[in-house]
């Protein structure tokens, strides 16, 4: 993980406010346990957006957790947006379940990200710090992750599409 990304994630995992794109200073020195927790949080967001289903791999199995996330169309990095998403997911997980996001089961994690994407579910409390900017960041991260997943051969194979040629019907050259 590169240094900027680590700093952003650490700041958000620690609960720093990244609502308006401000990142509060965070120490670059982290214990191995802290680094593991941050990585687990980051990966759990990816795993929630595109989980494995049955035998079909999800975002983590195709390596999306191990590379910098960028928008394949524009090349824009998604780190700052990801940091906001991580922050919001942590806050909602704490508010709803009193547990870190990464330790929740998939169903609960999905419900949290869906709530951030909106509309907010009735009867559920919205933490005050979770705002529109977080929804926009999640929309951006969602787009980047879906783009990455479905432009990857394994993501494509999961829907029966095989690039570069999509498994057209059989042709025998007898000419």
């Amino acid at each position: 993980m590169n240094r900027d990304r680590r700093l952003l994630l650490r700041a958000s995992a620690a609960g720093a406010l990244i609502g308006a794109g401000e990142v509060r200073a965070a120490s670059d020195a982290a214990s191995p346990e802290q680094a593991d927790r941050e990585s687990a949080l980051y990966r759990s967001v990816l795993d929630t957006l595109v989980p494995a289903i049955g035998d079909s791999p999800g975002a983590l199995a195709i390596g999306l957790g191990d590379v910098p996330l960028t928008d394949p169309g524009t090349g824009n990095p998604a780190d700052r947006h990801m940091a906001r998403v991580v922050f919001a997911a942590q806050r909602v997980a704490g508010s709803w379940h009193g547990e870190p996001f990464a330790t929740l089961d998939l169903e609960r994690r999905e419900a949290i990200l869906l709530a951030i994407l909106g509309p907010w579910p009735e009867g559920r409390q919205r933490p005050a710090e979770v705002e529109v900017a977080h929804r926009r960041s999640l929309q951006f991260v969602r787009k980047v992750v879906l783009d990455r997943f479905y432009t990857h051969p394994e993501g494509q194979a999961s829907i029966g599409y095989h690039a570069p040629w999509p498994g057209g019907y059989r042709v025998q050259d007898i000419g």
């Binding site: 595109v50 989980p51 999905e110 994407l117 783009d147 479905y150 432009t151 599409y161």
Partner: peptide, 20 residues
Amino acid sequence: PATVANRISGIGRAHRLAMR
């Protein structure tokens, strides 16, 4: 596939099943 994926709403398992 990526264009279609972005036009289907939602996330997670439901999104993957909808894509299929």
